[in-house]
Every structure is written in structure tokens, then in C-alpha cells.
Nucleic acid binder design. Sequence first.
DNA 1: ATGGGTGCAAATCCTTTGCATCTGC
DNA 2: GCAGATGCAAAGGATTTGCACCCAT
Lengths: 131, 131
Amino acid sequence: MQGKTLNTNAQAVLDVLRANSNHPTAQELYEQVRRVRPNIGVATVYRILHQLREQGMIREIGRDVECRYDADTGHHDHAICTLCGALLDVPADVRIPQDQLLRAAQSAGVELNDYEVRIYGRCRQCRQQNN
Amino acid sequence: MQGKTLNTNAQAVLDVLRANSNHPTAQELYEQVRRVRPNIGVATVYRILHQLREQGMIREIGRDVECRYDADTGHHDHAICTLCGALLDVPADVRIPQDQLLRAAQSAGVELNDYEVRIYGRCRQCRQQNN
DNA sequence: ATGGGTGCAAATCCTTTGCATCTGC
DNA sequence: GCAGATGCAAAGGATTTGCACCCAT
């Protein structure tokens, strides 16, 4: 499963990330990695994280620069185009049922105050143009 | 449904947002609102958006300042504590089934390259402390 | 005059980028 | 000597905050 040979820094970042059971932020990782390689810079950590993600070795959670707004407070399921960034609504009849989400919430030990389902992939338009 | 009386600016923001079928960003809203009230500042738009959200009149989508990382590329369902910000994994046996997400994706017209389910609510710890 | 709402600009936060340096080959 | 990797600092983009001002009460 080792797609590529990682250099020392990249390996250190990956090791530190794997040692975390939670989901650290880039900054948190940076601080932890510094204990092992004191001279490493933030930029390097960010660069390595991008590489690792491109190689599919790690996963980014919740990458969202800007916040979007919706006047319809009932919409919870969204499809996001990975090319043009469009944010589309999932039609009401195929949304994930609440009771399933409730079960997931309970298993994770949180209340279900709110939720969001985000589906990522190329939208129809982008598929045609960029095919 | 009008919980409070909105002032002129707030009403303008809400009107503009309601006139949008897509999900505009704060900046986009700002630009649109400026057509109606040319002197309004960005800060005011942001302040109003926060108020509206607190009153439950609008919904924020994908509010995430920092990006989190996961060495396990298989995890897609998360629970996020609204108090302490902890990001927890949903146990494997209660995750949302892929075929449902696939159906949702198809209905919205996007490929299913990736997805994320996020459930928001107070985690066990915070509930005890903050009860 | 008083308090809330506002515009402007500066400040913040996370992330990216430019660039000169360093390293291994 | 070169290519790729790196550290540092500056830049960037979205959002927040400080502050003085303004307006209606």
C-alpha cells in the first residue's frame, strides 16, 4: 500500500498523524511534528499534507474556505462539484432519512442537533465540458 | 414565522438571500445587497448573517475554519461537538450505506467521488459538564 | 444624551506562495 | 552543478473586531 517512497519529513508527518486517534488540524500536526524535527516549517507540513492526500494516503476533512448561506433551513443534503465548486441540493425524496442519522449520532455519543451530508463529484455541466 | 422585527439592512440581506436559488457565499451576498443599499459594509453583512442564523432564519453551510486530517482514508461519517469542537468518528456499523449516498448523488446529478456525513451536537463530555 | 446600528480599516486566522538556500547525487 | 525539498517571511482570502460616528428616541 506504500505507493511511493516518502522522504524523512513526509514519513514523520505520516507517522505523527497515524499516532493520533483523533483528527488533528494542520497546526496541531505541525506542533507535534516539531517535537521530532524541530526545524521543520509550517509550509513544509502543509506541502506534505497535500502530497499525502494526492497519493491517497490520508484524508482531508472539512475543507471549506468560505461559508455559504441558505434561506431554507430545512436543506441538509448537498452535492458539491469538485471542479466548479457549485453547491447543489439533493432532491427531497432521496435525502438520508433522519432515523439513520439519529442512530449514527447516538452511536457516536452526540445529540442530533443538526447534520449535513455532503457529496463530492463532478456536476453534470463540468462532466460534459471537461470530459 | 417572523421571530423578530428586522431592521432595514437585515431585511434587505434576508430578501436577497431568499431571492437566491443557489447558496451564495457571504461575499456574494454582500455584492448583491450593495445593489440595493450601496453604502452597506461587509462587516454589517457578516453581523446580520450571524444574527439571522441565531434566530434560526437562515442556515450556514460548511463553516470550517481549519482543515482536519485523518490517516484512515475510509472514515466518512463524523460527529462534531458544537461546544468543544471535537471531531468524533461514527462507528462503522451505523454509517450511512453507500448505495443511499449513490442514489442521492445521482439525483443531484453528480458523480459520487467522495462524501462526508457530519452530525452536529453536544458530545457526551460536554453534556455532563454543561448540562 | 443615549444606545444600537453602521462603515471603515486594521487585525486575525489558516493556508499558500515566493524565494533564496540547502541537500543529495 | 542540478533538481527537488525546505525554512522563512510575506502574501492571500475570508471573517472579525475596534472604534468613532450617526441617527432616532
